[in-house]
Design a protein around this nucleic acid. Structure first.
Lengths: 237, 237
DNA sequence: CTTCTTGCCTAACAAACGTTAGGTAGGCAC
DNA sequence: GTGCCTACCTAACGTTTGTTAGGCAAGAAG
């Protein structure tokens, strides 16, 4: 697993470097389309807009992508790859820092509360950083997936399922006393809280980590605990 | 305040009851448009689809609405009215049940933890019930507002601000030790968790209240508290 | 030099879109 | 009866859309 080129993203890679702005043409199309899809929506963005933003004409897009839907699929796939990579990187970091235990990412119920909270915090931060660090691609899943053409959804849903499964298993390992149904509802609530930030958190840096810390703290300890407001003395660092 | 007809919703109300399905024509248009906008998006839904679903032809829509944008505005306004009404009804119920204190909804920091949690729980349930009870209209704010034409957003944003302000003040009164910035971030996180349910909670009844209880409990006490999983003995009833 | 491939452009297509003008059937007022 | 208003329909308008076919310049390969 990792960031291998996907099925829809196969094609050439040898190219020229003639004129125009940054990156090769295919990359410029993806960036521009992702940006405009996120800002205005899929159907309300025309391929002529995308093309002109990428410094070309509408017909030229079809050299790189066979249809508008394929373009959206490529964006969504790339976005999910960013998220999965970030999750796995966070899991690796925790595994290396943590005890010299077995070879798997946190799977057993053998977590003391401090380690468990640290694990949650790191993964929340990783999710939010990946989400906003590649916002145009990743946020497409939040805003475009639900109303995307069915062929698009079918193409991307396996990747999404993988990511959601990783999170579900993480939460299940952190909350061994909860049953499966509660775990999945809690995951959906946490995803909702985190992903909604694409609609209001448009800063660059700083606020993201602040929000990540707040969400993790609130999710784990709740808001009623006065220690959270006063001293943060329950934090594991 | 309440459910008065809005500026965009002004027009006749005397009519006939000739043929076709349920409700008068204007109502059928609103229902059909809200349903299709939510399911497929604003731009991807054509007025011909809406009209045929409402049992008429496309041109006839313009007898009731002056444009497609005005139709969306009417839907969004109605959705926000549902939410505001539900919030105010919940506040009234709490005020009547609670102590015979002053005449305002919870405004002072004089909440014992049990009363505060009860207040949060009721408002979360009211929000989620209103959200799913009139899903086509209310969920439009979750899925359509961000990418809607700017004239639409301008027309609806005051109503949204009102509702968000009510929630912010509620949370501020429940969490007197938090500063303004934390309050507003917590509100955004809570809204994210609740509103994301329009994308996965499509049952009719039952699960909604279950999810409401889970979200309120998690938001207030967090997930780490083992009492939540085991005995629920901290719950105020 | 020629040939091939890569990466774009031009011009056009059919379809679908929001919107409008003009018409019409039926109920109500008088 | 006549006239008016309501609630639709028909037919068309101009524009925009995704998409395609054919062409063309430039570097690489022989």
């Amino acid at each position: 697993m990792g960031s291998a080129r996907s099925a829809v993203e196969t094609k050439r890679q040898g190219g020229r470097r003639t004129s125009e702005s940054s990156g090769d043409g295919r990359q410029r199309i993806l960036d521009e389309a992702a940006r405009r899809f996120l800002e205005s929506g899929y159907a309300e963005t025309s391929l002529r807009d995308v093309a002109s933003g990428a410094g070309m004409k509408a017909g030229s897009l079809y050299y790189h992508f066979e249809s508008k839907e394929a373009l959206l699929i490529a964006i969504l796939e790339r976005g999910m790859i960013y998220m999965v990579d970030a999750f796995e990187a966070a899991a690796r970091r925790l595994h290396n820092d943590g005890g010299p235990g077995d070879g798997q990412p946190p799977s057993g119920p053998d977590h003391d509360p401090v380690t468990a909270f640290r694990c949650l915090t790191d993964h929340v931060a990783a999710h939010l950083r990946a989400l906003h660090g590649n916002r145009a691609y990743t946020a497409a899943h939040v805003t475009l997936f639900r109303t995307a053409p069915e062929s698009v959804r079918r193409a991307v849903v396996p990747l999404r399922d993988d990511y959601e499964r990783q999170w579900t298993e993480l939460l299940a390992s952190l909350l061994p006393s909860r049953d499966r149904k509660e775990i999945s509802m809690l995951r959906l609530a946490l995803f909702g809280a985190m992903n909604a930030s694409v609609e209001w958190l448009d800063a660059g840096r700083g606020n993201i980590d602040e929000f990540a810390a707040l969400v993790a703290d609130q999710f784990w300890y709740g808001v009623a605990d006065q220690r959270s407001a006063a001293g943060h003395d329950h934090r594991g660092q």
